[in-house]
Amino acid sequence: MKRHLRLIPFILPGVLLYAVLFLYPTITALYYSFTNWDGLSPSYQYVGIDNYKLLKDDIIFGKSLMNNLKFMLFVVIVQTVVSLLLALQINKKSKVNVMLRALYFVPTILSSVSVGFIWSFIYDPSTGALNQLLTMMGLESWTQNWIGNASLAIFSIAAVQAWAHIGQMVVLFVAGLQAIPPELIEAARLDGATKVGLFLRVTWPLLAPAAAIVVSYTTIQSFKAFDLVFTMTGGGPAYSTEIISTYIYNSAFMNYAFGKAATASVFFLILISIITFLQFKLLRTDRVSY
């Protein structure tokens, strides 16, 4: 017992930081979700679950939720598949592969605001590099107003999100691949396993824990892509790129409806928790071990 008490001073700073930076804001947001506070007035009224009812009937919130789910699905699928394929290609230790890992990781160190401005110029329908490249290749029919087209804009931003973070996921997959005992790979090859069979029966099952981290982290990233969306479109055109985080921002700082914004934040937290939990259950990481 005394030994455990001696450990308290070591964990206390972490517990305090967690309480101040996470628990307190979460409890405060939950409290304000039951009020009509505007963010400025010293007084406010308790309105019960009225904010939750208003959120349910809010068309813009419904659009932001659907946009966020589209954004999340696109980013998770593209980012996971592409980063896994790249990791498989550069898994072996060599100077070229080390250089490629560093090259893939470069976009990750850029700020999302910088990435947003860069890709806004690339997507420009008149002078953007993407449309000019397509024209040079004789694919003028493919040119688009990439972030001005309401049906295309959310996927254009999702592609930028995936591009910016693929390198980070490659590093995680490479770490997972290098943790696989080489004896298992060699034994499977001696038994006559094909490349596809080797991946499906040996590599992927042992890579599941790394994949679970990649998928859950990518999901959280896609729901927190406020700075990228805000920089590139601000939620437009016609709310076609409005996601939950931009909805919360607009509700709180543009419409001064902090109570409603807090309600959306609580819903946001619950949604991410449920999706992440289901992803871990689906990948069944508890049944996989190295």
Score class of each variant (00 low, 15 high):
70 K>W: 15
71 F>T: 09
72 M>L: 15
74 F>D: 13
75 V>D: 12
76 V>R: 04
81 V>N: 14
82 V>W: 13
83 S>T: 09
83 S>F: 13
84 L>P: 04
85 L>A: 15
85 L>E: 13
86 L>I: 15
86 L>K: 07
87 A>F: 11
87 A>Q: 09
88 L>Y: 10
90 I>H: 00
93 K>H: 08
94 S>F: 05
95 K>C: 01
96 V>K: 12
97 N>E: 10
98 V>I: 13
99 M>P: 05
100 L>F: 09
100 L>N: 01
102 A>L: 03
103 L>E: 06
104 Y>T: 03
105 F>W: 06
105 F>E: 05
105 F>P: 09
107 P>Q: 06
107 P>H: 03
110 L>Q: 01
110 L>Y: 09
111 S>K: 07
111 S>A: 10
112 S>R: 04
115 V>N: 07
116 G>H: 03
116 G>V: 10
117 F>C: 04
118 I>N: 02
118 I>H: 03
121 F>A: 13
124 D>L: 04
124 D>H: 14
126 S>H: 09
127 T>Q: 10
127 T>V: 15
128 G>C: 06
129 A>L: 15
129 A>E: 02
132 Q>V: 04
134 L>M: 10
134 L>V: 11
135 T>Y: 10
135 T>F: 10
135 T>R: 06
137 M>D: 04
137 M>S: 06
138 G>F: 00
138 G>C: 03
138 G>D: 07
139 L>K: 12
140 E>A: 06
141 S>Q: 03
141 S>L: 05
142 W>S: 08
145 N>P: 02
147 I>S: 01
148 G>K: 02
148 G>N: 01
148 G>I: 01
148 G>E: 02
149 N>L: 05
150 A>I: 12
150 A>P: 08
152 L>D: 00
152 L>Q: 07
152 L>W: 07
155 F>N: 06
156 S>M: 10
157 I>M: 03
157 I>Y: 00
159 A>L: 12
159 A>I: 03
159 A>V: 07
160 V>M: 02
162 A>V: 00
163 W>V: 06
164 A>P: 00
165 H>I: 04
166 I>C: 00
167 G>Q: 07
167 G>D: 06
168 Q>F: 13
171 V>C: 04
172 L>N: 09
172 L>D: 03
172 L>I: 15
176 G>I: 12
177 L>P: 11
179 A>N: 15
179 A>Q: 15
182 P>C: 06
183 E>S: 15
184 L>S: 12
